[in-house]
């Protein structure tokens, strides 16, 4: 069902961010998207872009699904040059900080911030140390701002999906190599679209009934990794 609230999607250039934006757009939501080519670590550029898109208004929801694609390349850490480590791990941390900071300035009181991340930290993944490092950083950054922004009744929550779903969204893998995450078995629930699962949770978190949920992690992987 379409929402009349305005939603800012950051990271709509690829993967699940792209699929979420497409789904919200096609059902008629009021949508704002940052240009996919925008450098999310450039606070000035992000702020300026937001101001030009939002004008004097505000947004009700922010969906942030931005991990640099270099983080998905499987490689032992000892093989990484410092610039590769930076791009694969630290770029996404900086992007998360800048995105959250700049989004805050245009977010309405009572707004909802929803971060989408891949569920890789619960198990840890060899070859993806930069990704696991970035994901846990961003997840806890979200908890910290959830504590800060509660006074404006803004909630901040994280949804984690399987790595393949994060990387691909609705798209087929094609030639994209999806690293293997070590899990014990198949999902407990029958397969379905991860994008649908996430949209359902975004809608749920936007309801007044979810106004008391903040700083949490919701894992939408159909029971693949059950948190201890």
């Amino acid at each position: 069902m379409a929402s009349s609230a305005s939603t800012l999607v950051i990271g709509s250039g690829s993967g699940i961010g792209s699929s979420i934006a497409q789904r919200l757009r096609s059902r008629g939501d009021s949508m704002i998207e940052l240009p996919p080519t925008l450098d999310l670590t450039n606070a000035e550029a992000v702020g300026e872009s937001l101001r030009s898109l939002v004008g004097s208004g505000t947004v009700d929801r922010v969906v942030l699904a931005a991990i640099d694609p270099s983080a998905f390349r499987s490689a032992p850490i000892i093989s990484l040059a410092e610039a590769e480590w930076d791009q694969a791990a630290e770029y996404s941390m900086r992007a998360a900080f800048v995105s959250l900071q700049q989004a805050y300035a245009v977010l309405a009181d009572g707004g909802r911030v929803i971060l989408i991340l891949p569920t890789v930290v619960a198990t840890g993944v060899a070859g993806l140390v930069p990704l696991c490092t970035a994901v846990e950083t961003i997840r806890v950054m979200a908890k910290a701002v959830a504590r800060r922004w509660g006074t404006r009744s803004i909630t901040v929550n994280t949804i984690e999906v399987e790595l393949a779903a994060f990387m691909l969204g609705d798209n087929d893998a094609g030639e994209t190599e999806v690293p293997v995450v070590p899990v014990l078995g198949q999902p407990a629930l029958p397969p379905a679209s991860a994008v649908d699962d996430v949209i359902g949770l975004i809608d749920m978190l936007a309801t007044p009934a979810a106004g008391a949920i903040t700083g949490t992690l919701l894992v939408a992987d159909r029971g693949t990794v059950m948190q201890p």
Partner: peptide, 17 residues
């Protein structure tokens, strides 16, 4: 908080590696 969380994510992945 965030950089200390980074270390937890790092530990979990590097332990496997």
């Amino acid at each position: 908080s965030a950089v200390k969380a980074a270390q937890r994510g790092f530990v979990r992945a590097l332990a496997r590696e």
